[in-house]
């Protein structure tokens, strides 16, 4: 069981300068961003799969989850996804499963 204060930190809305900005390649911003774990879950379903590939293999997702949201457990799970080398919609589905499961778990623990 994780302390409520830690959970609320992971679930909080971060300032816009700390949000996650989705790019499809170097310098090409899609216009989509996520300022919380809840938004991040939603955006995984919406953004171009190219963007998910770009960020997964650069390690951007795990870095943001670890350093900004401060959820080391989720960061580790995202990191381990890389070793399976997923791409396209398979990557989208696997990433969505990992992140949404974690989000639902934390939300459930926070409410109880």
């Amino acid at each position: 069981m994780v302390a409520n204060s830690s959970i609320s930190r992971v679930l909080r809305k971060v300032p816009r300068e700390n949000a996650f900005y989705f790019f499809t390649s170097i310098g090409n911003y899609t216009g989509e961003n996520a300022g919380s774990l809840e938004e991040f879950v939603r955006k995984i379903k919406e953004v171009d799969a190219k963007s998910l590939e770009f960020h997964l293999y650069r390690g951007d997702f795990e870095k943001w989850v670890d350093e900004t949201l401060e959820d080391k457990e989720l960061a580790e799970k995202i990191r381990s996804l890389k070793s399976l080398s997923p791409s396209g919609n398979s990557l989208r589905n696997q990433l969505y499963l990992i992140v949404s499961k974690r989000y639902e778990k934390l939300k459930g623990e926070f409410c109880s």
Partner: peptide, 26 residues
Amino acid sequence: NQNRLHLFIAQSVAPLPGVLRIRTSI
């Protein structure tokens, strides 16, 4: 380098209020 270029755009340009999207050609 390309990584620094990306960091600058991701951290200093994309978060500016009013930015809708960005296209970059190296």
